[in-house]
């Protein structure tokens, strides 16, 4: 029996509740639906063992690929923030301690089971949904899904209305309130637009994996796996086929590209 809880509480309340370490595990897990995902069977050209093989720089992304991630919560140590630190360094954002306006590319969410008191911490970022609500509501078409499944904001067309932030069930997007300078050349960000995890699209396009995944293997628990969900032979697809995995709020039908194991 799944307990229904409102995940979509107003931002300020939610952050408070997170800080108080209140039961987020149930919140998340109760809402994880049976992870019935439909993987389109596809020919794959680019993924070998879950690691991307560089596409020629002049070739467009292919819909035959769907990038995704599998996070094994058991391997994600409490207190480890290797993925968060790596993301912040790679993309040039910083936590300012002002939780209402801080960038939300990736964060560790702590969840506790109220009965057993066991707690888990898991990284949550843009879930790169197959049916992204942020894309549905965007009035300018700035919020879009790339052919290879990566959900992005085209900041050139973003007018900063923030409908997408409201529509996102994962609270994965944030707005830039202050003027910035000296951004990373590969990660432009600026005041007045919405941003979120890009799955390190600039790295993926070069055949590398996202910075968080790399750091998780180097300095963390090795919990994160990146790969092509459409390729039945990729490491990630094999693991998803073999083990029970879950998508956060799979009941919404957004079909996230980020899967969790042992949640």
């Amino acid at each position: 029996m799944t307990r229904r809880m409102e995940f979509h509480v107003p931002q300020h309340e939610k952050r408070g509740f997170e800080a108080a370490g209140v039961d987020r595990r149930d919140l998340l897990r109760g809402l994880v639906a049976g992870a019935g995902l439909t993987l389109a069977s596809g020919v794959t050209l680019y993924a070998v063992g879950g690691v991307a093989e560089a596409r020629a720089p002049g070739d467009p992304v292919s819909p035959e690929v769907r990038w995704g991630m599998l996070i094994d919560v058991n391997k994600c140590p409490d207190g480890c923030k290797a993925c968060v630190t790596a993301c912040s360094k790679e993309n040039g954002w910083a936590e300012t301690g002002s939780s209402l306006t801080d960038a939300q590319w990736i964060r560790k969410v702590e969840v506790t089971d109220p009965r057993t008191k066991t707690s888990r911490a898991l990284p949550v970022m843009c879930q790169h949904c197959a049916e992204p609500p942020c894309v549905d509501v965007c009035p300018t078409g700035a919020s879009f899904k790339r052919d290879d499944g990566i959900v992005l904001v085209d900041k050139h067309t973003c007018i900063g209305c923030r409908y997408c932030m409201m529509a996102c069930p994962y609270n994965a997007r944030s707005f830039i309130h202050e003027p910035l300078s000296d951004q990373k050349p590969h990660a432009p960000r600026g005041k007045g637009t919405v941003e979120s995890c890009t799955l390190c699209v600039h790295r993926v396009d070069e055949g590398r994996s996202p910075a968080c995944v790399e750091a998780c293997h180097a300095d963390g628990g090795g919990a994160m796996l990146f790969g092509d969900l459409n390729d039945p032979d990729s490491e990630i697809s094999k693991r998803i086929a073999e083990y029970a995995t879950q998508q956060i709020r799979g009941d919404l039908g957004t079909d996230p590209g980020v899967h969790y194991q042992n949640l």
Binding site: R55, P57, G58, D59, P60, V61, F144, R146, D147, D148, L152, D154, H156, V201, H202, D205, E206
Partner: peptide, 9 residues
């Protein structure tokens, strides 16, 4: 080209 199609010439 870059943002929508991932073209990185």
């Amino acid at each position: 080209d870059t943002v929508h199609n991932g073209i990185r010439t």
